[in-house]
Design a binder for these strands. Structure first.
Length: 315
DNA sequence: AAATCGTGGCG
DNA sequence: TCGCCAAGATT
């Protein structure tokens, strides 16, 4: 029995039009040319919730410094976190470090090439495992990221936005849309992602430039508004903001930072090396319990270490 | 399974 | 200006 068609539009038409658009308009990103599986993995981890434009320069420096998992696994955690810089979510850097260690020990330094093995690596979830299998090893995997989810929601379902959380139905749909041919499936995954990133964007999509405007269910439905209100990401006044400010201090410091400096603006002025970062932390006017909570959290997460001399990045 | 976890650019 | 959002993962 043939499965129910996802839409009245033949998938072949979508494949052809979106793939052709990609081959014409795709961005020239460094990890798309002659890139090792390690380079692909690094890019995918960095791109988790961080825009391409911010990742690119860091990725290039990273690959020059640590061309292989073995090179990277040998680096001290503090250097890893400094190299990560301001990409955000620094725990990703630590997980990548742990992944490199595992790659060295279990896979003799070669990034594994199966979805299941990739999925078992620290910091690698369903999206990243599928993406590395596809883009590093040319495998036919169902890649579903925020861009692809949005394109599918509009193009096929006719809704402004995908559901708040990834659903089984979305995975089924994505699997149905995936070309049977291996090479075409790899191209399709990259193409739809790129379409979501450049044309079918979350805010003010460029529908007039879209290669599948005529096939779009959302357009056909009259571009209905979202059926729910995306919940915002609180920031000002949160522990996350404090953690970020503390991490900036620790990254800039070459020696342990005594806890007093994190509190006392007067004492902080004497510590020229981290004056700017401490100033930002002090500007937050964080209460004692919150700073304590943030520091404890950083230590628990392995992002900071406490010794009698003060806080510092992990060795 | 809802909450948590950074950062900065842009509409 | 300020809220939204970005190639998610983890617990």
């Amino acid at each position: 029995m043939p499965t129910t068609a996802p839409s009245r539009v033949p998938t072949e038409v979508l494949h052809h039009r979106i793939n052709a658009w990609f081959q014409r308009e795709a961005r020239d990103l460094p990890w798309r040319h002659d890139c090792s599986a390690w380079g692909i993995l690094v890019s995918e981890i960095m791109l988790q919730q961080t825009p391409v434009v911010r990742v690119q320069p860091v990725w290039e420096a990273w690959m020059e410094r640590w061309p292989t998992p073995a090179d990277f696994a040998a680096a001290p955690a503090a250097e890893v976190l400094r190299a990560w810089g301001r990409l955000g979510y620094p725990r990703r850097a630590l997980r990548l470090h742990a992944a490199a260690t595992e790659i060295l020990q279990k896979y003799d330094g070669a990034v594994p090439n199966t979805y299941t093995e990739l999925l078992a690596l620290p910091g690698v979830g369903t999206y990243t495992a599928a993406a590395v299998a596809a883009f590093a090893y040319g495998q036919r995997t169902t890649v579903v990221d925020t861009n692809i989810r949005r394109v599918h929601a509009r193009l096929v379902i006719g809704q402004a936005l995908p559901a708040p959380a990834l659903t089984a139905a979305e995975m089924t749909l994505a699997a149905q849309l995936l070309p049977e041919d291996r090479d075409k499936s790899v191209l399709w995954n990259a193409s739809v992602m790129e379409l979501g990133a450049l044309i079918c964007t979350a805010r003010s999509p460029k529908c007039e430039q879209c290669p599948v405007f005529e096939q779009c269910a959302w357009i056909a439905a009259g571009q209905p508004e979202p059926t729910y209100i995306p919940k915002g990401q609180p920031w000002a006044g949160t522990d996350r903001q404090v953690r970020g400010a503390v991490m900036a201090v620790l990254r800039a410091a070459s020696s342990p930072i005594h806890a007093d400096l994190l509190w006392d603006a007067q004492a902080a002025q004497l510590h020229l090396e981290v004056t700017a970062e401490l100033a930002k932390l002090h500007q937050l006017n964080t209460h004692a319990p919150q700073l304590e909570r943030a520091l404890a959290g950083l230590v628990v997460d392995g992002l900071a270490q406490l010794s009698p001399a003060g806080y510092q990045l992990p060795a």
